[in-house]
Amino acid sequence: MIRLEKLTKFYPSDIGDQYIFDNVDFIFPEGRNIAILGSNGAGKSTLFRMIAGSEYPNRGKVVTDKHLSWPVALATGIHPQMTGRENTRFIGRVNGVDDLDEYEEKVRDFAELGVKYDLPVKGYSSGMRSRLAFGCCIAIDFDIYLIDEATSVGDQRFRRKAKQALLDKSRTANVIMVSHDIKEIRQFCDSAIILHKGQLRFYAELEEALSIYKTL
């Protein structure tokens, strides 16, 4: 369950507070792979960050009893002074991984960092850092994976590998996705939430939601 309770989010401006959400109550349906759709500036990314816990509402709250991933493909929680291996073990401990040795090896194999896995992350390229973060995320069995343009990680071969790994996860867990790629949304999602003028509406049929989204 993910529930928005009296959710209010605004940003100050010279002409007054600009509200994205104002006292919104909403429950995300369970057991669905959901795309968040809306026109530019509707607040999709803001909502996504609040669900992920990386941004906070001004009032109200997001309540969940699910084990949520951080936004897949973002290098969240990666410490530059630590090695790839040390970061992996730290992230595993924080997320309650039982077998850290097994987890460490899964991440090493998936991220394809070679000997650099044991070097400080501060010397990594942005692509290597993203591959490490992606590997750390995909090797944990979350209830819900938060996907934000996730398949832009790495080179073309690694992107194919990343997409397949996420598709595999979407068959045993659920996903909430923000993406501008309609083809990708159709691959991952079976339903959608349209965000329009600060209100959320769930559509059980993805194609119906996409049709409405194109008119916004």
Rank of each mutant, 00 (worst) to 15 (best):
M50V: 09
L132S: 11
A173W: 04
G53M: 11
A42N: 02
F134G: 01
G96Y: 10
R160T: 12
G127H: 06
L74Q: 13
A111C: 10
G41P: 06
I140P: 04
A139E: 05
A150W: 08
E86S: 10
L166S: 05
L166A: 04
A165T: 12
K163W: 01
A139L: 02
G84V: 05
I138C: 01
R49P: 02
L119H: 10
A52C: 10
G96V: 04
P80C: 00
L132G: 10
T64F: 11
E86P: 12
R157D: 01
G114P: 03
V72T: 09
K163G: 02
V153T: 09
R160P: 00
V94E: 10
D148M: 06
E86G: 14
G60K: 10
V175W: 05
D101P: 14
S125K: 13
A139Q: 05
M50A: 03
I144W: 06
V62F: 04
H79K: 15
G53A: 03
S45V: 02
G84K: 13
I147K: 03
N174Y: 01
R89D: 07
R49G: 05
V175C: 14
G84F: 13
V97W: 15
S126H: 12
M82S: 08
G60C: 11
K169C: 02
F142E: 00
